[in-house]
Write a protein that binds this DNA or RNA. Sequence first.
DNA 1: GGCTAATCGAGACGGTACGTCCTGTCTTTGC
DNA 2: GCAAAGACAGGACGTACCGTCTCGATTAGCC
Lengths: 200, 200, 200, 200
Amino acid sequence: MAETRTPDSTRRSERSRRAIYDAALSLVGEAGYGRTTIEGIAARAGVGKQTIYRWWPSKAEVLLEAFLERGGQAAESDPALPDTGDLEADLKQVLRATVDELTDPGFEIPYRALAAEGVINADLGAQFVRKLLEPGLQLYVDRLRAARDAGAIDPDVDPRVAVELLVGPLAHRWLLRTLPLTHAYADSLVEYALRGIAPR
Amino acid sequence: MAETRTPDSTRRSERSRRAIYDAALSLVGEAGYGRTTIEGIAARAGVGKQTIYRWWPSKAEVLLEAFLERGGQAAESDPALPDTGDLEADLKQVLRATVDELTDPGFEIPYRALAAEGVINADLGAQFVRKLLEPGLQLYVDRLRAARDAGAIDPDVDPRVAVELLVGPLAHRWLLRTLPLTHAYADSLVEYALRGIAPR
Amino acid sequence: MAETRTPDSTRRSERSRRAIYDAALSLVGEAGYGRTTIEGIAARAGVGKQTIYRWWPSKAEVLLEAFLERGGQAAESDPALPDTGDLEADLKQVLRATVDELTDPGFEIPYRALAAEGVINADLGAQFVRKLLEPGLQLYVDRLRAARDAGAIDPDVDPRVAVELLVGPLAHRWLLRTLPLTHAYADSLVEYALRGIAPR
Amino acid sequence: MAETRTPDSTRRSERSRRAIYDAALSLVGEAGYGRTTIEGIAARAGVGKQTIYRWWPSKAEVLLEAFLERGGQAAESDPALPDTGDLEADLKQVLRATVDELTDPGFEIPYRALAAEGVINADLGAQFVRKLLEPGLQLYVDRLRAARDAGAIDPDVDPRVAVELLVGPLAHRWLLRTLPLTHAYADSLVEYALRGIAPR
DNA sequence: GGCTAATCGAGACGGTACGTCCTGTCTTTGC
DNA sequence: GCAAAGACAGGACGTACCGTCTCGATTAGCC
């Protein structure tokens, strides 16, 4: 049986790890995902190619980890959606913030690169969803469950499906660029969705 | 001024064009988009590489046209959504059919490849939307407008946004593989969406 | 039996023929033999590629004919070596003229191209020798035979070999660029050669 | 400033170097210089194309080095012309040996290829002369200088020019294939040349 | 002076090779 | 034993030409 060479992570160079993340994110931002190469990342990071191949299985995973490392703080800094008691206002605020984030250049390009890779590559896609997407969606689920318990929405509605009513159309516009992604659109989605899941 | 070499399309070989479509679709299905190469397509089609580079600017556009050529008939064969008078039943039927199509292997891989490329490449994405996606969405818009005129839905609702309430969550599940894409899910979407846009 | 398609030379376009010669010679002069292409010749001559392929079997033969057409006049204009009675003076004059010709840019590049091609390709080499080289050498042979009849050189000497004593070293320096090709060198060759073949 | 990529020659693969020489020589011998390709050499040598492009600037230089590596031993094995005291006999023996070598198939094709390339390409020609031709010619020069010191030839004669009287005509016949290259011709050349440079 | 057949300019075609870029592996040298 | 460096076998890239082929549009030579 082929023994997978497992490098000793205690001796890993922290300096190189960070340099690789920086190089990967900046290169993807400058040249796009397709034109970003392992060799290019290694060169910009001042690192041997083998150091990348030793610790990551693919270009996509380097980028995913780089993104988690950089974007992770933002997600962790605000661990819950606001709960002012006004569900509609709360959701509009958060959905508008999501719109702003998705249209923020610097965030958009690598995020698109990861999403696109995940569309094709099921493995990477699963990681993308689990590590990047789900934590954010879970906040919505929690907020909606609270709203259901408070009688603000139909108790028969699956909160998870309700979340998708909100973010699905948003993601659709963003990923496929069908129509402009605006605050007004975010507001409309909240209104229609809340009517759709209101108590009968 | 740089004169763009424009080949004479009247002398184009129909035989080669079709062979390239076949080769491209079969290779993407067998090996995936990333492992499909222009060289491979040319070899399988029995065609010189230059014949591909002469007529298409990229691998993605070859695949897009191949898909349009092959998938086009299906779209044209059924130029309108059913209108039995029962909006909910009609939408459920069509959304279920969409679920079936999206989970049909053979359709799924090249369609994912195109969608992913369009997520990154705005140009290709625009073509993907215009040529492949919009014609289908327009059918929904037409059906919903008819329903609105018949008083079945709120006259203040933009039918286009209503369509996105239906297909957005569906696309989200399919693209990101968050949760299983089932007929039951399609039915739920129709129910919530119709409640969301019902006359007040 | 495969019938060789023999085009009808009575219908041949004289205009194209000349344009091809001009284009071939100028391109070889500008870019060198290796970088001169059939396609380039056709483009510069304003001629279809097939018109070249119809009348010539190879790039080398186009150039050979072009050279014959252009350089031919010079050869024909002076059909005999001078015979002032002073063999040494006559040979020195002619050999000096040959040196001048060989170092004339415009003549040199295509002539080198043809010679080099003839070194590798025996067929083309034979044509090069027969059509371009031999007519000139024959003049030397004639002059030396006259000298032998006049008792100026050893009657046992083969005039043809004597010619090679003169032009061989000259060609050697020119082809391989071992040392500078000067009038003084030409004079030395004549002196040594004449001593070598003098009557005993 | 453009930094020329200089590979580290201490890490060069000796195995690949030799395999490339073998492949280059055998392919030139089999298919001729024009039909020998870098790709073909790489394939036969079991080597990546880049390994050839990394170490040599052109096909001609690969062949030149291959020739030096293989033919070098022969040249080094016999570092001086024979000196039996009989100049004429010594020269005839060596010139006959040269005739034999030039007509040896296996030697002839790559040597012609190099010579022809050198005729067109001045750079390569200079290397060809310096590395392959001159060492051999120098042996002649040494032997003739010794003969001059011994009073066997005219002290005013430049030994270098004398050498060219011998090898120039030989090279002429070989390169241009004007007439057969025989031992008898070699003998004639020695006789005429020695008479031409004899002491007065 | 029309008819007709071959040549013409043009350029698409199936191919081959080019020289470059990158992949993922391996080896060397230094820390 | 990880790291930087980079040579290696391999393979795809996109380009340039090859020699063949198929198109109308001349254009010459015979009726």
